[in-house]
Design a protein around this nucleic acid. Structure first.
Length: 109
RNA sequence: AGAGACAGCCAGACGGUUGCGUGGGGCAACUCACGAGGAAAGUCCGAGCACCACAGAGCAAGAGUGCAGGCUAACGGCCUGUGAAGGCGACUUCAAGGAAAGUGCAACAGAAAUAUACCGCAGUGCAAACUGUAAGGGUGGAAAUGCAGGGUAAGAGCCUACAAACGUUUUGGUGACAACGCGUUCAUGUAAACCCCACUCGGUGCAAGAAAUGAGACAAAAUGCUUGCUCGGCAUCUCGACAUAUUCGCUUGACGCUGUCGGUAACGACAGUGCUAGACAGAUAACCGUCCAAUACAGAACUCGGCUUACAGACUGAACUCUUACG
RNA sequence: GGCGGCGUAGCUUAGUUGGUUAUAGCGGCCGGUUCAUACCCGGCAGGUCGUUGGUUCGAAUCCGACCGCCGCUA
């Protein structure tokens, strides 16, 4: 995933948290809002309750891989944040399905 | 054969497709190289580096260390020894200075807790009691060193042998200390209670700090320089808040590997050889195949040396100890 | 990344210059009072003092190592 498609700054995350609509299923919460910058940017937030650094990194990397697969089909002009909500291990297929379902539900595909 | 003890190493490998970070090449498309750990962790110590003056002087306060010798840039680390404790043994463990410098504390029990005589024992006495004593009883973590013999009215290091503790001559050892001899029995424990002695320690930390851009406010005297006081010194236009998140610091270092030599060892010297992450919302992933007994603990954030803690499984070495069997 | 603090009964806590059996309130249970309920009165239970080693005759308390939680620092 190229760096222009990523959310970078703390204030960007805070903006999304304040102004976003949300959709969710039992695996993820997805926050999204419109942006004046043209390409859609995506961020990930994995809190400490999911475990130690190795486990959190693994969840984040799997999410990034799943999102970058669908990225070419996503429409421009949004900021998006994904937050996991399950405490058990994730299966990659499950993440992939979840991600496209949530993006579809929000109308970004 | 079984059960142990010691030292050390590894931490999945190879291949394919699609992706990520850094660097090089290229106008570009693209391509090449490299890309987490033994603990990267906890942040318990020691340093480098940066700023405060070049890190200073004195007094106080505070903190740490505590057998000896050595190693190291340094250390609270490591090595080799000493002593003590544990183990049949190989071997392991230990915050291991000072209690005759002083102060404090020692509940309950017990006659008595730093001091003593309750029951006893012996003598005197009709008795009450007085005197001597510390064997025996009982309390306690701790009660005038233990035990045997002599001795005695009964007893007692009062005397003797063996042991214990302390002091000390000589000898050995760089030293901690050890051995032998002599003397003494000097009334407990606690210093991870205060304290004493010896030694060490200036503070803050890469969000250190340096450079750059944009837009401001205030205004001439004290302020700042990160434990207190005194002294000394330095900076002077100053200030705090805001935005940018750009560049440097940022990875070649008390570095790794191999060999030879010195040393019991930690380690050192010399020679050769190698370059091995450097991000800034933060790079290792996704999907497969083969091998395998199996993949544990776990993810760099300025850098090193240690310590501590977590950890599946596999392997190696010297042939070290004990038990059993056979020869 | 750096620094500091706190863990005691179901909840909130006292005890933290070592000493006998660890304190109180709320809550819980039992009994009394009332025709009945509440208030009220009396009693009872409930604790590996976060875990684990050490110092000491003796540790919630002193020391070390871990675990968890909270806060400060841009």
């Amino acid at each position: 995933m190229k760096s222009i498609y990523r959310l970078k700054k703390n204030y960007q995350y805070n903006y999304v948290y304040k102004h976003a609509d949300s959709v969710a299923d039992k695996s993820f919460v997805m926050l999204y809002c419109t942006s004046h910058v043209s390409p859609t940017r995506v961020g990930f937030s994995v809190s400490k309750k999911f475990g130690k650094a190795v486990r959190r990194n693994r969840i984040r990397r799997q999410m990034k891989a799943a999102v970058s697969e669908v990225m070419p089909r996503v429409s421009d002009g949004y900021n998006v944040v994904f937050i996991p909500r399950k405490s058990e291990d994730y299966d990659f297929d499950e993440i992939r399905q979840s991600v496209s379902r949530l993006l579809g539900k929000a109308g970004l595909l």
